[in-house]
């Protein structure tokens, strides 16, 4: 009886080890949509009050159809880094006074699985009456979903400046 029990025990532990050996070791996310930013380019310059085209190519590898796109922008005057991109040439660090912030959200066609989204955007210089937005280093945060709710995310660094110098410190 005792021997039989030991046998059971060993079998039990052996099966545990086998289960361990069989456990896969992977960490892949294959069904998220993908985003390729076509415009503006990385480290591009955008001018206040002048339109630029926001253009991205979105694909859905799961072929379920697209959901929505959201892109927002915020300043990077403190030089934080995003993701694995190479850093752009940046201005010296500074305090934010009136940074520009906004978010744009649009639906994407749920019949498409490979789509180019395009939107003409103009960033206003005026932050109020006689006040102006801070110029300098900014980011875009870009989120895309597919119809199943899979989400993906990427970032884009750019410089947001005034064509004629900053209105707050007069161009001389």
């Amino acid at each position: 009886m005792k021997k039989y029990l030991r046998g059971t025990m060993l079998l039990f532990i052996a099966s545990l080890l086998m289960f361990w050996a069989c456990a896969e070791d992977e960490d892949t996310v294959v069904l998220q949509p993908t985003v390729e930013v076509l415009s503006p380019e990385y480290c591009d310059t955008i001018w206040f009050d002048e339109p630029f085209t926001f253009r991205i190519r979105v694909t859905d590898p799961g072929k379920k159809g697209l959901g929505a796109v959201s892109f927002d922008t915020h300043h990077n005057f403190n030089h934080h880094t995003h993701g694995s991109h190479l850093p752009c040439d940046m201005d010296p660090k500074k305090e934010a006074v009136r940074p520009f912030e906004n978010v744009w959200i649009y639906d994407l066609p749920d019949a498409e699985t490979d789509y180019i989204f395009e939107k003409e955007v103009t960033i206003p210089s005026a932050a109020g009456e006689d006040t102006y937005h801070d110029y300098g280093d900014y980011h875009f945060h870009i989120y895309v979903t597919n119809s199943q709710g899979y989400q993906t995310f990427t970032t884009l660094d750019y410089k947001l400046i005034y064509r004629e110098g900053h209105p707050d410190d007069p161009w001389e």
Partner: peptide, 20 residues
């Protein structure tokens, strides 16, 4: 403590490798 991998996940949930 032996823990298996979890690859049976839902959208936006990361798969997790096993560990000892």
């Amino acid at each position: 403590l032996w823990v298996g991998a979890q690859t049976n996940t839902v959208p936006n949930e990361l798969n997790t490798p096993g560990y000892f």
